[in-house]
Every structure is written in structure tokens, then in C-alpha cells.
Design a binder for these strands. Structure first.
Lengths: 241, 241
DNA sequence: CGAGCTCTTGAAAACCTTCAAAAACAGTGG
DNA sequence: CCACTGTTTTTGAAGGTTTTCAAGAGCTCG
């Protein structure tokens, strides 16, 4: 699935590298050194970047495309832990020896990634401690985020969780249009269900209801958020505006 | 609440320091240097070590006692994220400037902690990069753990989650007795409920049922696990043994 | 021995899932 | 262009799980 490709022009991607959490604050020289050690990877839509339980070999930065990170339970249910996009770092734990991917990464769209092997990244971190500290800071913030979502899952009702998930998705992956924020998601009801710990039926009913109220406009594999403010009010269970 | 105390004999605690994730693999010299920068803190049972939203100032190692980490929702519900004990590290994110505690830490029993200020730990990490790498490894493993619990919350029924919570607690905080593994928990039904995202009523019913089946023996503020194997089968929804 | 917790229990209600089936849609090939 | 196919979404009805509310029982400690 993955095709290595060394001939891609780096200039448009440099901007992403400069801003990605792992490499923030590095000098151009260091950044160039880091880039020289990287390999480009292409993954086509719906292909797998890595599988849960595989030996963790690479650490990635996403340059282009959208990646879905999910876990599968022993009973076969899927849970989507996160959706990543351009600029996001992935598979941090690969820097540790004998690490195992704790989840599966699937390309939702065609993706272009930059990757470093375990050993390469270990060396880079030793050579440039700033990278290690950046990584620590990044993973800590991800940890805090996940804690918040854990609490949400433990305390909020399905409707609120769906609202929240839509808002999070729209912030990260949405495109502003004249109507509102447009979201393209393959198999959207199913996906939203797996992000919020519910079923596609409940998501469908909830979205339908919101469509009736004019909060969203939804169709096959896409949702447009027309009224983020009301949606946010639902997410927090505030009295409706 | 906190009383600083510099006169405590370090010998019995040194063993804990050597094995705590943050300081694993450090030479005795380095460990001594690290210890010299630390301060001892005493917290009595039920006192707060820090509050959610406070400025994060200290990073801790627990030497003695049990600490409950919880978040409070805007609606006032509590969610217990973790229970820590001797040897555990706490409030890692304090090493970052302007960090805010994302949760509240309450001493469940009388506690003795070792603490370092933000700046001190930053300096230590710069001076001994091994500490930074240890921290990265530690927080990564905590992250992976939390992901697993997130999935559990999203996919499993209450009964299974309670079983899992009891098993986790017993592993970490239980005492082996002739009958089974004994767990002391103040306000146990309520606490278990807050750990599993359910209500104390449901926990009570579930525990009662397990007691009838002879899997546990439960009383006021305590639970003894008599049959961890069956409990584990319930947690995984296996056919009963 | 009474006050205040903690825990249990029952009944009703709310919430959500499951199952089944139909409708809507996109893409394909004739 | 249209019928056909497979996928995605919607909808209804039934059922299961869990919460909520209310009240009582049991323990502990001053």
C-alpha cells in the first residue's frame, strides 16, 4: 500500500513541518537535518497505515489527507479514538523499543506522510533534546484532551456527545462555506456513532431531528453545521437559545 | 494542609524512588542530586493536594498513601480518572510553563509525597535528559492505558465496567488475605460509580448480586474479591465458568 | 442511643439499542 | 438515459439496560 517517494517538492510542506508540535522551535538547519532523515509515504484512501498490535516501527507527520485512528474490541466493535489531519503527529510511541501500535490507522482520504523509523527518531531526540521535550509536551496535551473526552463519555448523554463530536470535527476538518461549516465523512452516521460510543441508528435520528430544527443540513456522507452556537448549547446542555 | 518536612529518613523511600517511572535507570549519584532538590509534603486523609484549574506548580512522587484524581463537570458530577498509590508519579504537566492542573487530587489516606517545583524539574530534565525520556515513556504508557479505558467506557455495559474497575483496584491497591483480595475504599459504592460512569444505585445492585453468587464479599467502605477469575470473565463478557 | 453516613431495594421512567424493513442515493453498464 | 446494484440513511416498534426517585435498613461513632 505504501509507496516511498523521495522526489516530492518540500517547499509547500516545510510550512507544515515548522508548525507541527514535534518540531516547533527548531532552527532551519536542524529542521533540514530532520527532513533529510525522513521518508515520504503515500497511502491511498481506505488503505491502512498500520494495524493495532503490529510492531510500532515508524513515527509520522501527516502532510496531506485525513487519518482515522480506531481500536477494535474483542467483540468486533470499533471505536474511533481520533481523526487526524495535516500537521498532526502520529504514532509517537514508536520511539520506544518493542512498542506495539495500540490502534489502527486508516487513510480516510489519499494521504501523504513523512515518516521516521524508531531508531532514526531516537537518534534525533538524543541529538536534539528539544524534539524530546516537544514530544513530551505534545503527548501531555493529547493526554489531557483524552481525559476530557473520557469524562464526557462518562457523564453526558448521547445527544450531547454527538453535538460535541460534530463541533470538534468541524473545527479540525471542516470547510467554511456560505451556508456553514461543511464536513465530508465517508459513512458518516456509522463514523459519528463510533466516535461517540453509540449506534448509527441513534446518530441518524439525532441528526434528523437537528435538521428539522435547522441546526444542521445533512446528506449522504456529509454534514453541514448551520448553527454551531445552538449545537454547542446542546453539547453543554444549556437551556436552548 | 501541606506541611513541609525536611527531616524524614530517606532510606525506606529510596527504594520507591529507584523504581518510580520517572527516575528509573538513574545512577545513585544522580538520584541523590534529584532527591536533594525535593521537598517532602504531608497531606492528611481527605485533604486536597491540588485543585482542578489551579496553576500547576509541583510535580510529585507518592511515597505513602493513596490519592484520588478526579474531574468535576460543569453540572457538578464527579468522575474519578485514577487512583494512585506509592511509587506513582503525579502532575507531570507541571513541568510546562503556565500549565493548569486538569483535575483535582485528594488524599484518600494520609499521604507522604515528594515534590519538585516546575522550575526545579525543568532544570533536572535539562541536566539529566534521561529523566525527560523516562517521563515521555511514562506519560505515553498512561496515554495508552487511558485509551483502553475510553474504549471500555464506549463499548461495555455497566456490569462489565464495574468488574474491570474492581480488578484494577485490587491489583493496585488490594491486600491479599486468606479469603481473597481485600479493598478498603471510603464511600465505596459512590467511588466505584464515579470510576465507571454509572450511579451508586447500580453499583450497589451489581455488588449485591455478585455477593449472592459468592464472587465478592462486600461491606461498608470495603470489598473483598473472592473469585477474581469469574469477575474477569464478567469483565470480558465470557460465558460464565 | 441517636445522628449521620452508607448501603440496599422497589417501582417507574428515561434513554438507548436492537431488529427489521423500507427509502434514498451514487455509480455502473447496458 | 434508465434500470440495476450495492451502500448509506431513515424510520417504527419492541425490548433491554440504566437512571431516577423515594424510602427504609444497617453501621459507626460520639
Amino acid at each position: 500500500m505504501a509507496k516511498k517517494d523521495q522526489t516530492i517538492q518540500t517547499s509547500p510542506h516545510l510550512q507544515i513541518m515548522v508548525n507541527t508540535p514535534l518540531f516547533k522551535g527548531l532552527s532551519v538547519d536542524v529542521l533540514t537535518a530532520v527532513l533529510n532523515q525522513a521518508q515520504y509515504y503515500n497511502f491511498s484512501s481506505q488503505s491502512f497505515i498500520f494495524h493495532q498490535y503490529d510492531k510500532a516501527e515508524n513515527i509520522y507527520v501527516i502532510l496531506k489527507g485525513q487519518v482515522c485512528l480506531s481500536q477494535t474490541t474483542s467483540a468486533g466493535k470499533q471505536v474511533i479514538i481520533n481523526m487526524f489531519g495535516a500537521g498532526d503527529n502520529m504514532a509517537i510511541l514508536s520511539v520506544f523499543d518493542k512498542a506495539i501500535y495500540p490502534l489502527t490507522a486508516e487513510a480516510v482520504t489519499d494521504c501523504l506522510l513523512l515518516g521516521w523509523s524508531s531508531q532514526t527518531m531516537q537518534q534525533l531526540m538524543e541529538q536534539y533534546p528539544r524534539i524530546a521535550l516537544n514530544t513530551l509536551k505534545f503527548i501531555t496535551s493529547r493526554f489531557v484532551e483524552l481525559q476530557d473526552r473520557y469524562r464526557e463519555l462518562a457523564t453526558k448523554r448521547v445527544e450531547q456527545r454527538i453535538a460535541h463530536a460534530l463541533l470538534r470535527l468541524s473545527q479540525k476538518h471542516g470547510q467554511s462555506t456560505s451556508d456553514g461549516i461543511f464536513l465530508k465523512l465517508p459513512n458518516s452516521r456509522q463514523m459519528i456513532a463510533e466516535m461517540t460510543g453509540t449506534t448509527l441508528y441513534t446518530v441518524s435520528r439525532t441528526c434528523r431531528q437537528w435538521e428539522e430544527l435547522g441546526l444542521i443540513q445533512s446528506g449522504r456522507e456529509q454534514v453541514t453545521i448551520l448553527n454551531p452556537v445552538s449545537l454547542s448549547a446542546i453539547a453543554q446542555e444549556l437551556p436552548q437559545i
